[in-house]
């Protein structure tokens, strides 16, 4: 994982988040939750910064980050793809959709394409079961997709 120093504006935002929570170690999960929105992920340097601010060992921050599936240390793509694996989507073939995304993009779940454009994840139900199977790309919902649609959608975004 890259050990880059954080850009100034990012550091300022993360500092502000910690401060808003009173630099309280008990608020670690909430702080991480908000900090992840700043860059879309939690790079090593950001975790070190949070640990220093809260005066706790960085091993504890990293322990929490790796414990909860919500937190990620990989940068999301420009177009983050989330395939719904909820019951309705699953029975209507979302697994095949997921396999197709994996095949076309050449990445696994939780990974990002080398050009930084696409990342692939799963989620559980976005409340649009009537449109199953559902895929979210960024904030946009794509419903009733078939594996044959995958290539076209990706090309449109590209």
């Amino acid at each position: 994982m890259p050990d880059t120093k954080l850009p100034c504006d990012v550091a300022e935002k993360v500092n502000a988040i910690c401060q808003a929570h009173g630099d309280n170690p008990g608020e670690l999960i909430n702080i991480l939750h908000e900090a992840q929105h700043v860059m879309g992920y939690l790079p090593e340097e950001m975790q070190r910064m949070i640990a220093r601010r809260l005066s706790i060992p960085v091993s504890r921050v990293y322990g929490v980050v790796t414990f909860y599936a919500f937190f990620t240390m990989t940068a999301k793509g420009k177009y983050p793809i989330s395939v719904c694996m909820g019951t309705a989507c699953y029975v209507r073939g979302s697994e095949k959709l997921l396999e197709e995304f994996k095949r076309v993009l050449g990445i696994d779940v939780g990974e990002t394409t080398p050009d930084g454009k696409f990342s692939l994840d799963c989620l559980r139900c976005v409340g649009a079961c009537g449109l199953a199977p559902v895929v979210m790309i960024g904030d946009k919902v794509y419903g009733r997709l078939q594996p044959v649609d995958v290539k076209r959608i990706l090309e449109e975004l590209d």
């Binding site: 975790q47 706790i56 060992p57 960085v58 091993s59 504890r60 990293y62 322990g63 790796t66």
Partner: peptide
Amino acid sequence: VGALGAIRRGFNTTIAPAF
């Protein structure tokens, strides 16, 4: 010192330094 801590969860848990 803060060198060792539990990371990951369930069957994948291990005790290790950060990262």
